[in-house]
Design a protein around this nucleic acid. Structure first.
Lengths: 254, 254
DNA sequence: CCATCTTTGTGCACGCGTTCACAAAGACAT
DNA sequence: ATGTCTTTGTGAACGCGTGCACAAAGATGG
């Protein structure tokens, strides 16, 4: 690919594999839950189960960060929370702007998980003059005209795009020109960005289509092994072990 | 891992790699755009650029579906749209239920991309009695009590969870027990499901944390090569080639 | 101080996904 | 018909990520 290098050397530069980085937030969440329950230590086995991953994988992941465990005992929860937070850069404040305050943008602004860890919604931006001044999630919406000034004034380096597909590239260009170097894109479009800018994308439609593929395959297999009957799904269902499933975490430099 | 097999044999069973499946929706989107502009054929190079991937990768992906191209010419747009749609199972109707009609759930219900390709929002479900009957996106919200009946009546096999984290597992269990075999999870939790059920997860918080990691690394590198100055971000920015970036599409069986 | 038991950290092998590079296939012109 | 030119389809090499299996480390008890 053309500029796939955008983030790839990134990974190698500090030695932590991209796949591992993508799992760190998962571990952090599980650890935070343990911390709130005042659990002092966890074994890799327990933590792996809570995070939904293989314990060997978890240990290997942690080994990239250093040797923070104690053999025969496990990991110190508080210490690990701190180390992972630091590694992810969550010990500092990250002002974020959301561009495109429609249904989704408003939902994102209200989303609690945003503010939870170092992320702060610094501003909401929309192209509709009607929206200007209206408060959403307690924050007044500002007009796109002031985008550059807003980015600059707040020292924003992370932008979230929740505009319609048609406006996404244009918004992206302006964000990047204004100094944003990381973008989370919810618009169903492929964004072109200069080298050095990270883009991650979240696409509901794509996720559903992938599910549909597997769903279709399941229906086909079922038809093959038993019979053409397919609708009363509730009838057929794997009793199966309810082992905490979980494969690869989300990864996707777009 | 425990039940990671959930979807893995799936892939092998019909020979199409999971990574390829995850990219098919991307190609489909690009092809649809071309179709609307009445473009008859595309080369792998052009289509790859539009989808933001490597052309060799695209050709290999298509090779798993069969030989639909013509050497020296390229691919027939309409034919390819049909083939990919069929492969993804989008030629049939997929009734979907959304559980948890808060800010996010409502945004999802209003999301146009949902209905666009074979997906139809069959019902909205919420635990709040106050919501019952209220129309969201033109569809009346129904109470959780009727979940099983709704799933059964509409023959739903795909469920979307947009509830708070605390309720997610419980909702998931009920969906699965009622016959749902594919789940798209927006709640920040690891879901346990029986074998044979596919779960994909979308987690805003995780995506942001991954961006923060790279952002921090960029700042660190910058500090190392030039100086400690970091704040006036707008100053430093890669002029760089604007090559249509894009690596791997979203993949993530949870 | 020694033995035993638990749990980490990792060397190694395997498989998947990506990419290169090129031969084969077909279109098109002469 | 023959040659040239374009573009596909794929064999092969490479690298990353995963998981096994075990040795080393340390805790704990006698």
């Amino acid at each position: 690919m053309a500029t796939g290098r955008t983030h790839r050397p990134a990974t190698r530069s500090r030695g932590i594999p991209e796949a591992t980085v993508a799992r760190l937030p998962l571990y952090l969440r599980a650890l935070t839950a343990l911390s709130e329950r005042s659990v002092p230590t966890v074994s890799s086995e327990e933590l792996a189960a809570a995070a939904g991953v293989n314990s060997a994988k978890l240990r290997k992941d942690f080994s990239y960060l250093g040797s923070y465990g104690t053999r025969g005992v496990g990991y110190d929860v508080e210490y690990l929370v701190y180390q992972i937070s630091r590694e992810l850069g969550l010990t500092q404040d990250w002002p974020v702007v959301i561009v495109g305050i429609g249904n989704l943008g408003a939902a994102l602004a209200n989303y609690g998980g945003f503010a939870s860890r170092g992320f702060r919604v610094a501003a909401l931006i929309d192209a509709d003059p009607e929206m200007a001044g209206k408060p959403v999630a307690g924050i007044p919406v500002q007009h796109t005209d002031d985008l550059e000034k807003i980015i600059d004034d707040n020292g924003v380096s992370i932008g979230v795009i929740a505009t319609p597909a048609g406006a996404a590239q244009q918004v992206c260009d302006r964000l990047v020109a204004a100094g944003v170097t990381s973008i989370l894109n919810f618009a169903p479009t492929v964004l072109s960005v200069p080298d050095g800018v990270d883009v991650r994308k979240v696409d509901l439609s794509i996720e559903l289509q992938i599910l549909a593929f597997h769903e279709q395959r399941k229906a086909g297999e079922e038809a093959a092994e038993t019979d053409g009957r397919r609708r009363p799904v509730a009838a057929r269902k794997t009793p199966a072990d309810k082992g905490p499933d979980g494969d690869v975490p989300a990864v996707m430099p777009a």
